[in-house]
Design a binder for these strands. Structure first.
Length: 809
RNA sequence: GCCCGGUUGGCGGAAUUGGUAUACGCGUUCGACUUAAAAUCGAAUGGAGAAAUCCAUAUGAGUUCAAGUCUCAUACCGGGCACCA
């Protein structure tokens, strides 16, 4: 007998799969044997950024989950689409180019080739004819087309404002790319810089993005994160007249019920009206305060939570009370949220309270604290009856909210308003290695979109990829490329200069799931027929981008549905968010710590891809983090060896027929099928191990081994293929028959007062006979010891539990 | 601070609907094979106890015939958000 030699058989099957294009998705009009349209499954992982370091064990976990499901559904004879691609635009390739002089195009090509080779070594069931790459002009031509559709619909627009700027990467960043005040790529502290930039109006879909989360079969954790990110809050805007001036200041509040307690206003340092509110005494102080606030990094603003601020010199009038309210400026009010101005109610808001205490401003209680509430609380922000609130005294604060807004509306000084924390998506990047934004500007600075028939706008060749502090990307150095002649509506030439910024990489990944359905279409971004059949994606697997990518795809989906390009409004039916694999020491793997496990090394050390794949599925629940265990992987290798021996070792085969295994076979078929359906991959592998252990003990038939190979195939496809070849069998997913799952006799558990006291074997036919079960249970020897001479209060026989509980006094 | 998760043997974890806690794997121990070792195969393995049995799912209460699972409180660990008015 040959020994199990994973490297040999894996090479053999990978070659066969590549040559036969074994995982090519079926046509969209595929039919079943009975002539009905063939049901489809569309599965994908979050496509990787192909770094120079190659695949890591995290990729392997992510891709293997998709692979197990892909092979499972394929074996069930569904029409399965499982494509693969590369998210190739981005900073690492560009920084590499700066360092080495190797162009991003070159480096990307090399890295893709490496990733492809590695993915093939893992035996993934990928339809390789559908490979895509976001930096391929054939792909980004259509990214630019998407941009133009958003532009035409008014959802791509330019705005000059303060933006997050990373001084190291020398580019602006979206809110979603700033983590705790630091750049998500290089980790450097970000700054605010006033620039004119392109945005996508994701806020236009804020409500739908929030509401339709309910339809998504996604982890609650991710849905909650998205809900918090969108941050919808209902309240009102109220206008406060400025004393002695024609201006009024608009504020946003979620607590209009507390307006009688508003004793001062606070404006953000960036507020445009500030200049008008200062007088000769205060001008200098306010200006220097604002200048300081703008200079401070967001980190500094957050670290120092002690309230600071300056009085502007002006007063506003409270529209509810008519009282005079000083207007202050402070950096605890943010320009980007609401109106950039607040009415301060120190009696009922922690931050306003702190501010009022520090600057000795009046505090007026307007909501009565219930008697049973916590006394330690210095300012009460719960609900209660209104006091000091004129005609609203005695009203519950919950009810007063509506009533007071209605009253303000009547008087024309306020109205209901909903605000969101989510801002529009900033998409300009001052970098070379991104998708060029397909617009140009005439000499007056007017925007002219590049006509669709002139796409793609390709990258110019440049020698120097180094960005600088000018706020213009390296594309600005390609003088010839910059010039473009466009036509106006009368057909006259307009001399224009191209946009030099590139698109945020997240734009490229916002539509790739649809491109996969017709990846080589030269007429459209995606083929309407293909999209109708394949999309939306049935299962999408990844472990990152909870609020960035996963929000952006949903936004684009809704937009293109509105434009008539997509027949659905949610792009991903089921999302599996997998956990990380940490180093054996439990810490994050990182090059600098030297604790990185290289999957290719694991394979080539002799374990092979099947062991690696199966181990990563067995390591724990897919959605939890796990630590690599260099010894435990040996257990999985031993298991696959035992599978091999069952099939190829003649000595073991002789044990066949010594026992009937039909019941355990049907039980494992059911268990593994159920477990894969509920994505409990670790217990599916455990069930297979248990099955093999049993077969070793009691012997086995040929059918037992066929079932084993079929059930094993999603996890260890090479080994399973080798086994099925030897057995001369297909790989169609086995079915179980309920009638084999019930044994003739079952063990009845007997409890006395809930404690296990005895076991009785009873015939299956007796399970329905409650009286007989009670009788048998009470007759058991050990049970007798516990119930003799005791009053029996109750005997419980739960349905289907194979258990009797005797309750005695 | 607020919002989510989580806490089960020496370790990773299982227990899907409230019904036999600790499946499966690692590690450890013993045995077989071997001159020996590795590999492989077999057995044992929550704690205490000679045994009957008792005690164990972070801690404390509660509901129930029955709780790892449900309820309340506390502690600890992880994640997300964080001056969002």
């Amino acid at each position: 007998m040959d020994r199990y030699d994973p490297l040999k058989i894996e090479q053999k099957w990978q070659k066969i799969w590549a040559e036969t294009k074994a995982f090519k998705a079926g046509p969209i009009d595929a039919k079943t044997a009975s002539g009905d349209p063939k049901p489809k499954k569309y599965l994908a992982e979050m496509f990787p950024y192909p770094s120079g370091a190659g695949l890591h064990v995290g990729h392997v976990r992510n891709f293997t989950i998709v692979d197990v499901l892909t092979r499972f559904y394929t074996q069930q004879e569904l029409n399965v689409l499982r494509p693969f691609g590369y998210d190739t635009f981005g900073l690492p390739a560009e920084n590499y180019a700066i360092k080495t002089g190797i162009s991003p195009q070159e480096a990307t090509k090399t890295n893709i080739a490496n990733f492809r080779k590695q993915a093939q070594k893992l035996g993934y069931a990928i339809d390789w004819d559908r490979e895509i790459n976001t930096s391929d002009p054939e792909y980004y031509k259509w990214t630019q087309w998407c941009f133009l559709q958003l532009y035409k619909a008014g959802l791509a627009y330019q705005k000059e404002s303060y933006q997050w700027w990373c001084p190291v990467d020398k580019t602006v960043l979206a809110n979603e790319q700033v983590e705790n005040g630091h750049c998500w790529r290089c980790g450097h502290e970000v700054e605010k810089k006033k620039m004119k930039q392109w945005f996508f109006k994701i806020t236009a879909y804020a409500d739908e993005l929030l509401d339709s989360l309910d339809e998504c079969d996604w982890p609650e954790k991710i849905k909650t994160m998205q809900k918090n990110w969108i941050g919808r809050s209902e309240g009102a805007t109220v206008r406060f007249d400025v004393e002695g001036r024609p201006d009024s200041i608009e504020v946003f509040t979620t607590r209009p019920d507390t307006i009688f307690g508003a004793t001062f206003l606070v404006l953000a340092p960036e507020h445009p009206l500030l200049g008008d509110l200062v007088n000769d005494d205060t001008r200098e102080k306010v200006e220097s305060y604002c200048a300081d606030a703008l200079k401070k990094s967001e980190i500094e603003r957050q670290e120092n939570k002690e309230k600071t601020g300056v009085f502007t010199g002006s007063y506003a009038i409270n529209p509810a009370t008519g009282a005079k309210m000083p207007i202050w400026v402070s950096d605890y009010v943010l320009m980007g949220y609401g109106t950039g101005a607040i009415m301060a109610v120190p009696a009922h808001d922690e931050r306003d309270f702190e501010f009022a205490e520090k600057f000795e401003l009046p505090i007026i209680e307007v909501v009565e604290k219930p008697e049973n509430s916590d006394d330690a609380e210095r300012c009460y922000h719960g609900e209660g009856e209104l006091v000091n609130s004129g005609q609203f005294n005695g009203t519950r604060s919950e009810d007063a909210r509506e009533q007071i807004v209605a009253w303000l509306e009547e008087r024309g000084v306020g109205e209901k308003k909903v605000t969101y924390k989510m801002r529009d998506w900033l998409i300009s990047r001052q970098r070379y290695w991104g998708c060029p934004i397909p617009v140009a500007y005439d000499k007056d600075g007017n925007v002219h979109p590049i006509p669709e028939d002139q796409l793609p706008v390709m990258h110019p060749e440049v020698k120097d990829y180094q960005p600088d502090d000018t706020g213009r990307s390296p594309l600005a150095k390609a003088e010839e490329w910059l010039k473009v002649t466009l036509k106006d509506e009368n057909g006259n030439d307009i001399e224009c200069t191209r946009e030099t910024d590139t698109l945020d990489g997240y734009a490229c990944s916002s539509w790739y799931l649809w491109r996969y359905t017709s990846p080589h279409d030269t007429e459209a971004a995606w083929d309407p027929e293909a999209i109708k059949y394949w999309a939306p994606t049935d299962v999408y697997v990844g472990g990152d981008h909870a609020v960035a990518h996963l929000l952006y795809v949903r936004f684009w989906c809704k937009f293109f549905a509105d434009q008539g390009y997509l027949p659905f409004r949610e792009p991903i039916k089921k999302l599996l968010y997998n956990g990380y694999i940490n180093a054996p020491d439990g810490k994050k793997m990182s090059k600098s710590k030297g604790n990185v496990i290289d999957p290719l090394e694991v394979i080539e050390s002799g374990y092979g891809a099947d062991t690696l794949r199966t181990y990563e599925m067995f390591i724990g629940p897919y959605d939890q983090d796990a630590a690599w265990n260099t010894e435990a992987i040996g257990g999985v290798y031993r298991f696959l060896n035992r599978c091999w021996n069952l099939c190829f070792d003649d000595a073991l085969r002789e044990k066949a027929g010594t026992s009937s295994t039909i019941s355990i076979r049907h039980r494992v078929i059911k268990k593994v099928t159920d477990d894969i359906h509920r994505c409990s991959f670790n217990t599916a592998v455990a069930a297979l191990m248990e099955y093999v252990n049993e077969l070793y003990k009691v012997g086995h038939s040929r059918d037992d081994i066929i079932a084993l190979a079929k059930l094993l195939k999603p996890f260890a496809p090479h080994l399973a293929s080798e086994m099925l070849e030897k057995l001369g069998n297909d790989d169609i997913w086995p079915e179980w028959d309920e009638k084999y799952l019930v044994a003739d006799e079952v063990e009845l558990v007997v409890q006395v007062n809930g404690k296990l006291r005895g076991r009785v074997m009873v015939g299956v036919d007796l399970l329905e006979d409650e009286e007989k079960l009670k009788e048998l249970a009470m007759a058991e020897e050990n049970v007798q010891r516990f119930i003799a001479n005791k009053e029996i209060r109750k005997v419980i026989v739960p349905k289907g539990a194979k258990l009797v509980n005797i309750v005695v006094a």
